[in-house]
Simulated scan of single mutants.
Amino acid sequence: MCCCNTAVMYGDELARYGFGSSHPWNNRRIHAFWSRLQSERRDANFLIEQPELASEQDILSFHDKDYVEFVKMASRQCRSIPLDRGDTPSFRGVFEAALYVVGSTLAALDMVIEGKDRLGRKVEHAFNPIAGLHHARRDSAGGFCVFNDIGAAVMRARQKHRIRRIAYVDIDAHHGDGVFYEFESDPELFFADVHQQGIYPGTGFSTETGAGAAKGTKLNVPLRAGAGDAEFLEAFAEMERFVDGCRPELIILQCGADGLAGDPITDLRYSAQAHAHAAGALHRLAHRHCAGRIIALGGGGYNPFNIGSAWTEVVKAFASPFPSSPH
């Protein structure tokens, strides 16, 4: 048995991505996670990695130039400018803050694929807590998401690392529409998403399974309000079989903590064991199919206690002992 080194992105630069103290996505979220992770460090084998700034070219690999220029303009203003229909306000410096989110996800991806961090230390898995901005589209923001770091990571994996078959798994309470629709026709982006039905963004029906040549490569599992661990485990069993059948070269997990009981803006009732189960199952599949290549991205979650407990379970699952020669 061997323990897996997991890189955790952490630094004040990531805390910059927040929309004010009264906003659900505030600047304190990363500290709630960090405090809990530190208290359980004995059970989590991880390396601390500094945030990294994305280049504008990294952003343009996924986003339209006109939209990037719009965010850049809004970022320079002293007043807030809506970046979408009202959910995602701008703030002075939002452009640079969002670049740190994307850059840190790309750095996490590079470490996992290359097997080492910037200091040459062995890395097998990675977690970026302030990331997983799955609502941003190529030409717009959405749902507190300015730039879609997931989309940029898919492009980096393909363009730099020549990885084609990617499994994207999303357990955030909200449907990952910015990933689903932008890759709806991509037959090598395997998408599996469990979410609460009927809330923002109002998408992710079970009948949405991909378009054209990608039909059947997408899986949406909506749950009713009030669903708890039992319903989650049943849904995730289907998702696990789906990912196993995809035989991916890379797994990306968006592990939003807003499905836990007590979140102020959703109505699901998971415990942190849902995240422990999902991360553990995907950890095993990553070792089975893609030499352990898995990264996790924090996503949503607006209850500080839930953020700390759910995301710490993800890191612990990734860092847990695993047979050195998996079947």
Rank of each mutant, 00 (worst) to 15 (best):
G120W: 08
V123R: 00
Q254V: 01
E234K: 11
A167N: 10
H23G: 08
I113S: 05
N45W: 12
F305L: 15
G256E: 11
R76C: 08
P248L: 09
R293E: 07
D258F: 06
I295K: 01
F183C: 04
F305W: 14
L253S: 05
I30T: 04
L47H: 04
T207D: 14
R241E: 14
L250R: 02
A136V: 05
L253P: 02
A54R: 01
S61Y: 00
A7V: 04
G280Y: 02
W25H: 10
T203G: 04
H63M: 07
Y100W: 14
I171N: 09
H195Q: 14
R36T: 10
I130S: 02
A141S: 15
T6F: 01
S325P: 00
Q273C: 03
Q273V: 06
E40T: 02
F318M: 15
I150T: 05
I150F: 03
R16I: 00
I59S: 01
G115S: 01
R162C: 12
A98N: 04
P24T: 12
S80D: 12
L189I: 15
D84Y: 11
I295V: 15
A225C: 10
A319P: 02
R158V: 00
H174D: 04
F144S: 06
I171M: 15
G280A: 07
E49Q: 11
E56T: 10
A319H: 02
R76S: 13
V94A: 01
H134A: 09
G120E: 09
A261G: 08
E208Y: 02
F183Y: 15
E182G: 01
C4G: 06
K316N: 01
S35A: 13
Q50W: 09
L133G: 00
R85N: 13
V315M: 00
T266P: 03
G299N: 02
F191L: 07
K72W: 11
D84N: 09
D244Y: 00
Q159A: 12
Q273L: 12
V194L: 12
I163P: 12
H23M: 11
G228Q: 12
D117Y: 05
Q50S: 15
R293V: 04
Y302H: 11
N306H: 07
T105C: 10
A54E: 05
P222E: 12
I30A: 08
P187N: 11
E249V: 07
R288D: 07
C246V: 10
D186S: 13
G176Q: 10
E182T: 11
E13R: 10
I163D: 14
A319V: 02
L219D: 13
D117M: 06
A278T: 08
P51Q: 11
R28T: 09
A279V: 11
D193K: 08
N5A: 15
P129Y: 07
S206V: 14
E49F: 00
